[in-house]
């Protein structure tokens, strides 16, 4: 059997990749993918810990997180499409009209 710690390390790596992706990529869709990766890293950690503690609740939480992520996708993609219609670009570096 694969030890639990391997899953946790994998999930930490996934989370880091997601966070770095959000910070360094400039395309709104790719940034969004990074965020999804972070949420799924949390899902992996939930399932692994649920197995370690032998409680079912951790696996239930994954469903909650998936549902929330789906709601976020709905709103986020709608926003990105709206921005694309007005600006013909979803590069976040070009979103710089608000300054002060």
């Amino acid at each position: 059997m694969v030890p639990i710690s391997y899953y946790i390390i994998l999930s930490a790596i996934l989370f880091t990749i997601g966070a770095v992706c959000v910070l360094i990529r400039r395309n709104a869709i790719i940034i969004f993918m990074g965020i999804e990766l972070m949420l799924n890293a949390a899902n992996l950690a939930f399932v692994a810990f649920a197995n370690q503690h032998q409680v079912i609740s951790g696996q239930i939480f994954v469903f909650f997180v998936i549902a929330v992520a789906a709601a976020e996708v709905a709103v986020g993609l709608a926003l990105i499409v709206t921005i694309f219609r007005t600006r013909k670009s979803i590069d976040v570096d070009q979103l710089n009209s608000l300054k002060g």
Partner: peptide, 17 residues
Amino acid sequence: GAFAGGFVVYGVALSFG
């Protein structure tokens, strides 16, 4: 906001662990 949400949920996962 979604980025922050990612931190919260990972924090919850670790606290659960």
